[in-house]
Amino acid sequence: MLKTWNEYQKEVPDDHFFYVRSCIRQTFFPGSETMLLRILREHLNKDVFEDPRHTTCTGIGYHSDIIPLETIMTVVGRQLALMTEAGYKNLLVSCVTSFGIYLEILDMWKHFPEKLENTKIALKKSTNREFEIPESVSHASDVIFHFKDKIREKSNLKLINLQTGQPLKVVDHIGCHYAKIFPHEGFGGAEFPSVLSGLIKTWGGEMIDYPERRHCCGFGFRHYLVQENRGYSISNAKLKFESMAQYKPDFIIANCPGCTMFLDKWQYALAEMTGKTYDTKNNGIPVLTYEELAGLMLGHNPWQMGMQMHQINVEPLLEKLGYNYCKKEKYYLAGKPTKSP
């Protein structure tokens, strides 16, 4: 029997995934989701199916009190119907908000079977579709965690600062809806999430457990959506930056679309508002998605992964890693200059 949550391991299927994307990730971290698919398909020879007809899970609207429960249940039912029609049973979710939504709705259906029946009827009436309950729900970071050793075997890179010879210091941030709603659905539960720290440790970096590690990034849906409330939102991010800055981290890794975006963009906003950056070189702390990091491990071109779209310049990190990349390509990927931000 496991004694503590920090040893807790979640079960992740080995193959045959039905992938559902995030609404916002492709704007802020444009290469990440493609990277995941390429890693699974090209590097690990896994079967991942994606249906272009799938839609938003409406989670942001749901958490902002715009979308009613019945609606989101029907939308979730439709996504599952697409999966059922394609013959898949393992749901693979890109977004932590969606991940939380799927788990929450499935749990609700378990406890209130009449709600499931109503959803089935509503979906049948509106789309003539039928769905089955998935056998497993995995977050994309779960899958990267599951294959972390395989990725290490295929990689020539180690998370070491070549300038000092020391392991890179990494801080993580786990989206609140990853395991704080259903601790059993995340590696390490709610208190000791290891889904990202496990990657860092396996790939040679040093993981830092900083005091505000479990603090929310400040996203909070209805808070940042209203401009007047954004001060509250950014203050939470500030608290996290101040807590992690004392460890001089080389980069932040996050597994939630909103958190990754905020941790990246808020550093710029805070620098403008307070004049403070949270590293020693006035650059800010680079923020990476787990797919981008896995992509670097497997030798992918950072600019093809869209890392030039980050608010915080990632080049100082690439220098530390001694990463082989072409500086010039940053804004000249397609052979002609892309617009500089």
Partner: peptide, 12 residues
């Protein structure tokens, strides 16, 4: 509410 590690072998 919680204890977490802090800089310099301390717990926050």
């Amino acid at each position: 509410s919680e204890a977490s590690p802090a800089n310099g072998n301390k717990v926050n």
